Computed example of a mutant assay.
Amino acid sequence: MTDWIKTTIESLGYVGIALLMFLENLFPPIPSELIMPLAGYTANLPGAKLNIYGVFFAGLMGSVLGALIWYYPGKFLSEKRLQALADKYGSWLGISNKDIIQAKHWFNKQGKKAVLIGRLVPGVRTLISIPAGISNMHLPSFLFYTTVGSGCWVGLLTYTGYVLGSQYELVDKYLAPVSKFVLGGLILAFAFWILKRKRKSRRR
């Protein structure tokens, strides 16, 4: 996959970066943790045709457009219909109906900030658009939080790849445990919130 990503960036430039990040939102197995560090590294090569700012904005644009693709099915299709489609075709995209349910519950508890935070968490960042659409979150708000969250994620990956140079693959290696730690922390915080709510209900 690395060779394919590299070839796409080298042949299509900024358009290739935007396309890859767009596809990354549709097919989670395509890792942004590899796309953007590689693009950042490419921008730091001697005589590079790309610059780090163009790489960042191309990646951000592709990421936001990809998020919109998941927002509209959530807005116009019922939750049950989406779950049925996930059961039937989700294996092609790497998602299941359980993923949709989990993302929906998290969105309901966290509100609008779930979109911003979710864009920073691998495994959640792709699917968080679906409950936003199901809940009829206003498009301007969705775009704002998605852009801010995606900007932070894309910027981090691009800069680390630019700084690490030929060792850009270390980004994925060291970021994966950190991402799992962050996701675990969010799950614990959510569990604590539920426990706290139950205690308050019993007191009443």
Rank of each mutant, 00 (worst) to 15 (best):
P46V: 01
K49I: 03
K49H: 11
L50H: 00
L50I: 03
L50Q: 01
N51T: 04
I52L: 13
Y53E: 02
G54S: 02
V55R: 00
V55N: 00
F56Y: 13
F57M: 09
M61V: 14
G66M: 05
L68I: 08
I69V: 15
W70H: 06
Y71S: 05
Y71H: 06
Y71M: 04
Y72G: 05
P73E: 05
P73M: 10
K75D: 12
K75S: 14
F76K: 13
L77S: 06
L77D: 04
L77W: 06
S78F: 03
S78T: 13
S78H: 00
E79C: 11
K80T: 13
R81F: 10
A84L: 13
L85Q: 11
L85W: 10
A86V: 06
A86G: 04
A86M: 07
A86Y: 05
D87N: 15
D87P: 03
K88W: 07
K88H: 12
Y89F: 15
Y89K: 15
Y89A: 14
W92F: 14
L93Y: 11
L93P: 04
G94F: 13
G94S: 14
G94M: 13
I95S: 05
I100Q: 10
I100V: 14
I101F: 08
Q102M: 11
A103P: 10
A103E: 08
K104T: 15
K104R: 14
W106H: 08
F107A: 12
F107T: 11
F107W: 14
N108H: 15
K109M: 15
Q110W: 12
G111Q: 13
K112L: 15
K112E: 14
K112I: 13
V115Y: 01
L116D: 08
L116Y: 09
I117M: 09
V121I: 15
V121W: 08
G123S: 13
V124P: 07
R125C: 07
T126S: 14
I128A: 10
S129P: 12
S129R: 05
S129K: 07
P131T: 10
P131M: 08
G133R: 05
G133Q: 06
G133W: 05
I134K: 04
I134C: 03
I134W: 04
N136V: 10
N136D: 14
M137R: 07
H138Y: 07
P140S: 12
S141H: 09
S141G: 06
S141V: 06
F142N: 02
F142C: 05
L143G: 08
F144Q: 00
F144A: 03
Y145H: 11
Y145E: 07
Y145Q: 07
Y145K: 07
T146I: 04
T147R: 08
V148N: 05
G149N: 04
G151V: 02
G151F: 07
G151M: 01
G151T: 01
C152N: 00
C152K: 01
W153F: 10
W153P: 01
V154Q: 06
V154F: 01
G155T: 00
L156P: 01
L156K: 03
Y159A: 05
T160W: 02
G161K: 00
G161S: 02
V163P: 03
G165F: 03
G165H: 01
G165M: 00
Q167D: 12
